[in-house]
Write a protein that binds this DNA or RNA. Structure first.
Lengths: 364, 364
DNA sequence: TATTAGCACTCGGAACGTGAGAGTGCCAAC
DNA sequence: GTTGGCACTCTCACGTTCCGAGTGCTAATA
């Protein structure tokens, strides 16, 4: 099974060249690269064997060779030189990371945008499933017909909402409910907040206006939202840059699959404990629609013991090396900025803190 | 300038047919539709004149006719039969509207998705610029190192955030600041919250920990966010369904323009006081990239004296009639659900209320 | 035994030519 | 003013030809 050193070099050359040009590569082209000190004839022989072994294939007799998924796999596993980003590149990326994250933190959205821009492939980001609970309830009495619900979640996110009542409520009731919820509904998972408990609370607080129902509805909704992994897709149109997607039908199929949501990289999720980058080549993907595309995924620490994923989708002829390097840099950068790390006991998304860790000087 | 009745009918027929088939339409095809009781020869004569008048053009001699932008304009203005949605269609739409809006209200996002799904063109939704102010401040003391800022905006939206302090603050200070902000910073526009005022407040509250700065930063950020119109684009890939975008380059150009954000329909904004639908045909668009596409826009009442826009982008050969009907229905539906209307004095996004207006029966 | 040079062969794709068909414009007749 | 007829035009689809890139094989070489 182990193949000769020279074969590896040749395989690597084919993949490199094919990634670059998107055209089948011939023996002559490899010989001319000068890395191997042998003639095109020798290379031809080796190529023929690589085809026999299944690493390469020919679109037709008398065309150059093209890597098979197996060939790419070998390339990714052993051959590819772990690309280091140039200094400019990494500075550029850092810069944009900072910019992005500083403005408004629609994090996932920005992350996927950034990934897409950097790699020039469609990218998507998603947050991991978590199990957030409510840590603290506050009800702010505004006037007889309005009060504000404020929920502080275990992730330290804060959600709030104004509730308008068709009937008048007195301040005491609101106060009572606030105490009650804090006493009985903190730390409960979404599933634990049952209609039974809600009903019990309603009676306990002597709530005849249905406020308990309104509040718990908001709580449930909020928890559901916070616990549902959300995905964000960017730069789908970049697919059209790739020659393999010049066929609008092909492109459209993949694009609508991607924007159709969910089932994208989650399939490849879970097996991502390390901070390494993962590559799924063509048929290695579970989804039918991705069978002749590749996916590169990196995971980052999103704080709150949560890991997010960034993935990039492209043709199998993808610049794995560059994409992997960029994604892993991006993931590392995000982890540093968002992740708990050595930050204060309760990792917060506080801008001030981010800046401190970041470069030490604040603005005011 | 006024053209004969028969010419109009013929023009309408050409546009209809062309919209349907995407192919130049010939005299025979029109004659066969049976609406006109004359022969193809007569129609040929009329067609020739319509070409001379600038309503139609020929891709080449001996090809059928294709409408010019001017032809479409005429069609849209006078000829097009205001399509009524079928009963099923409108019920379907109502259904989806309800579904969509009930779950979580990422309104713009959902609106654009919906519009895109319904019309099968890329759609984008955006919120109008507004001038929101803070109506009420609440600071919730959590512990010495943490407090929550809750802002109630003039739009009745509520924004909140947990602030973590590297130093300890006492409850009184937080209380003091709360009072102070409510006294001096309510109803101020973003621009009116100047560093000077902030500084003054800081001194007035005897705040040595910089809380004032943190709070006002959040306020400014929140106001900026609330006042910035946001846009959301959906279904860009649907462009690829259209034969005129089978050329990947063309498609890519338009798609990246669209996803490039901002400058899309805002150009056509502002002149939209009525609830009518607006159509911009080809060169009528200001943006270079849209010069040979068309845009259909409807505006809806998003509550808070704010109007949102929904727009759809497609080839000039777009089914204006259907799209216009759908968009206007959608806009009307949204206005009904989101808009102030006869709703309580302060239009709220309260789910309960929506449901009441909607169909009268609630769930609990 | 591994490498190389040479050569005949294959095959895809560009270039070209051809023909069919759709549609026109115009004319003469109604 | 309308209609049928007819010659003309132009595109598109199809088939043929031709070129060249790249191969596989063989024989010569180190």
């Amino acid at each position: 099974m182990a193949i000769s050193d020279r074969k590896k070099k040749i395989l690597a050359a084919v993949v490199d060249e094919y990634i670059r040009t998107a055209e089948p590569v011939g023996s002559k082209a490899i010989a001319q690269r000068g890395e191997l000190k042998c003639s095109s004839a020798t290379i031809r022989n080796e190529l023929a064997e690589l085809v026999a072994l299944g690493y390469l294939e020919q679109p037709h007799t008398s065309a150059g060779r093209v890597p098979t998924p197996m060939g790419y796999r070998m390339y990714v596993n052993e051959l590819m030189e772990r690309q280091k980003l140039s200094l400019e590149e990494s500075e550029e990326m850092n810069l944009r990371l900072n910019q992005k994250l500083q403005e408004l933190d629609d994090t996932i959205k920005d992350v996927s945008r950034l990934a897409s821009q950097l790699t020039d492939y469609p990218a998507l980001a998603l947050t991991a499933q978590s199990s957030v609970t409510v840590k603290r309830y506050d009800l702010i009495y505004v006037d007889a017909n309005n009060f504000i619900i404020v929920l502080m979640l275990s992730s330290n996110a804060v959600k709030s909402k104004l509730v308008h009542l068709p009937v008048s409520a007195d301040q005491e009731l609101v106060q009572r409910l606030s105490t009650l919820f804090n006493a009985s509904f903190t730390g409960l998972a979404e599933a634990e907040i049952t209609p039974v408990k809600i009903h019990a609370a309603e009676r306990a607080a002597d709530d005849q206006l249905g406020l308990t129902a309104v509040i718990s509805a908001f709580v449930l909704e909020t928890l559901a939202e916070a616990n549902t992994p959300t995905a964000f897709l960017s730069g789908e149109n970049r697919l059209l840059n790739q020659p393999e997607f010049r066929d609008p039908d092909k492109a459209h199929k993949l694009m609508s699959y991607l924007s159709g949501g969910g089932t994208i990289l989650p399939s490849a999720e879970g097996m991502q404990p390390s901070d390494e980058v993962r590559v799924l080549i063509g048929p290695e993907n579970v989804a039918e629609e991705l069978k002749d595309s590749s996916v590169v995924i990196a995971s980052y620490d999103a704080g709150d013991n949560t890991r997010g994923l960034i993935g990039v989708v492209g043709p199998t002829r993808m610049d794995y090396s560059a994409v992997a390097a960029k994604l892993s840099f991006l993931a590392a950068g995000l982890s540093r900025r968002l992740g708990g790390g050595e930050a204060p006991p309760e990792g917060l998304h506080n801008k001030l803190i981010i800046k401190e860790i970041d470069d030490g000087h604040e603005r005011r």
